[in-house]
Nucleic acid binder design. Structure first.
Lengths: 358, 358
DNA sequence: CACACCTCCGCAACCGGTTTCGTTGACCGC
DNA sequence: GCGGTCAACGAAACCGGTTGCGGAGGTGTG
């Protein structure tokens, strides 16, 4: 209330309570060595004055900051904001404050890791799903604090993620079981300049699934695009102009699949009758678009990563440092059995005004 | 590199450079009073050792934290994550670190404002679009730091937002011009317990537009639901069961509109032929669903709020403390002229397999 | 009754910087 | 050659806490 409240320090409180700073400090941190009576008296005074300790000063002497950094390439896409939400929901109740850093492109990334604003600023770092170069990896290690990876893996840092290859196989196998033989993949990479595991793993899963089914991969059916909706559309267009277009498409993510759907809609191609589409994520929009997908737990990856971080900070030895969360096939309306003969040119309800059937 | 790097302090650097801490400090902060030669020598040593000052220690003596807090009710929805992105993109280059607090429900809100983890922790607070009670407002003020509101307004804090009433009028007027007379509104509130301006303002704009056109408002055509996709669907269901269903629906936001579309699709009602739908936001999904909407600049509200914050911190007097950003009607495929006679029971392409026409 | 021991608490030294103030020495003008 | 200015720098006092150490007083034991 009182605007001057924030101006008083522990010495003032101590003076008012008729004790020493040390005692006030002990009371506030719950340390032993204070009589119940004194403790109560100080406590009462403290919240009458609505006094709070300065986190920075405390940090200085105690050594820990009570802060955790979250580093992600973007905050706007659903995946990242959901992971962030998971992280926050765990950290806040434990009294940790969360610093968020958005490192969008290579240029920002270079700058960020060069002058590393996290230095001496946080107790731990959670890195969410993005490619980290050798140099950046060293920089992270040099921070000297625990680093946890969410939605990926990096060196031997503890991590929580899904099995990307397995998820891809779930998706592709679903298409194969439906009788599809010409199955394309629209793959995505966050940045073309830096290696990033998920696209590679998903591609691997895709190829493996085809291989196991005795289908051979057609290079023309593998396209690679930056990760976004519009790029998904572009990828689909490329596939449609192939010599023999696919009857089914596996997209890197639901957002990419969404772009593919838009492209198909504009081309007047019926989904799923002419072409089946499947993604990965179970993005909220997937349900709206009736998109078949492989669901991954997203917010959960955030909460688990945060819990792991807390365990590391607490020196808890009994933690599982490498966590792989399960994925599930969610069958909706954008996949269907292959047509007896794959007549891919087949047009379905072009210009139709309804939204995908539920 | 060297893991011991983070262990050295300014005194060490000073000793190695053969100068005093004061000089090192001056060099690092670019303060005058150091010869060019000494400055260069210290600088060289500093980045050879890759030494960085401890932000906390600096804060302690300087007084400012170099940190800004962002408080929002959620991070997962597009609006909030986009605003956050805007804020981050401005603050980081200026050397500010951003603490993010997610205050989801009333309970969390009470806790958050009661023990206010921001105290003595940040230089300024950006509050993103959510209802703040009297008590919470006082708590914010008691922080003694600048408070900027994005996506709303609060007391006389500087803010940046859109004109919600005007945006609603843009939407409803579009429907009216298309000849609609029975126009419903699906309104949304973040939490039913606390007052929140945007829903009220949009409702006001809705009613005003109807009024100006000489149409009278039918209470049955005004429904209120929590803000989410599924709730939007529920709101639509309620409208469909009205005695005389509407021929057009104005939704509080695109997400709500999306739910409405899903509900209509499931009911087999053609959009826009039987019922037109319009939202507010221009959410990315709007383009995919071909949803007519009133676009508001979202990320821009974040960047502007951050700029305002910087200006306040910099003591810049020449700032415009109340900013209202323009909105624009984006006409797509979910709105159409009213049918000659509003035959609202008309079913359109039920079970159709196409996606909305582009 | 003396001595050991334990509890409660204050003193003061940190933590790692910033900043005020004063000192030193070079340079200037007369 | 001497007093005065000014630039460059160091000593030390902060900033606001935490914590090791030791002293005072009370209680239990021989």
């Amino acid at each position: 209330m009182d605007p001057t409240a924030r101006r008083l320090n522990m010495a003032d409180v101590a003076a008012l309570a008729g004790v020493s700073k040390a005692t006030v400090s002990r009371v506030l941190s719950g340390a032993p060595g204070v009589s119940d009576e004194t403790r109560a008296r100080v406590k009462a005074l403290v919240d009458e004055l609505s006094y709070v300790v300065s986190p920075d000063a405390a940090r200085l002497s105690r050594g820990s900051t009570g802060r955790v950094a979250v580093v992600m390439p973007q905050t706007t896409t659903w995946f990242y904001s959901a992971v962030l939400s998971g992280v926050l929901s765990v950290l806040r109740p434990e009294g940790f404050d969360t610093l968020v850093y958005q490192v969008a492109d290579d240029r920002e990334s270079r700058r960020f890791f060069a002058d590393l604003p996290l230095r001496r600023q946080v107790d731990a770092v959670i890195v969410v799903a993005f490619p980290v170069s050798e140099f950046e990896q060293r920089q992270l290690a040099a921070l000297g604090v625990p680093v946890v990876i969410a939605g990926g893996a990096l060196a031997d840092h503890p991590h929580v993620r899904i099995d990307d290859a397995a998820a891809a196989r779930q998706a592709v196998t679903h298409l194969i079981r439906a009788g599809h033989e010409r199955i394309a993949m629209i793959n995505a990479a966050l940045s073309p300049e830096r290696p990033y595991a998920p696209p590679m793993d998903r591609m691997y899963g895709y190829r493996t699934a085809l291989d196991e089914a005795g289908l051979d991969a057609d290079p023309q059916l593998e396209v690679d695009v930056p990760w976004s909706v519009t790029m998904g559309a572009e990828g689909m267009d490329r596939l449609l102009s192939a010599d023999r277009p696919p009857t089914a498409v596996f997209a890197f993510s639901d957002e990419v699949a969404t772009g593919a759907l838009r492209s198909l809609r504009r081309a007047g191609i019926a989904v799923p009758h002419a072409i089946s589409v499947i993604g990965i994520d179970d993005h909220p929009v997937a349900e709206l678009l009736d998109l078949t997908t492989v669901r991954q737990p997203v917010e959960l990856q955030g909460t688990r990563a945060a819990e792991m971080t807390l365990a590391l900070l607490g020196g808890d030895p009994g933690i599982q440092p490498q966590l792989t969360l399960p994925t599930h096939l969610v069958i909706r309306g954008t996949t269907a059995p292959a047509e007896p003969r794959g007549r891919t040119g087949d047009h379905g309800t072009p210009g139709g005004s309804g939204v995908t059937a539920g």
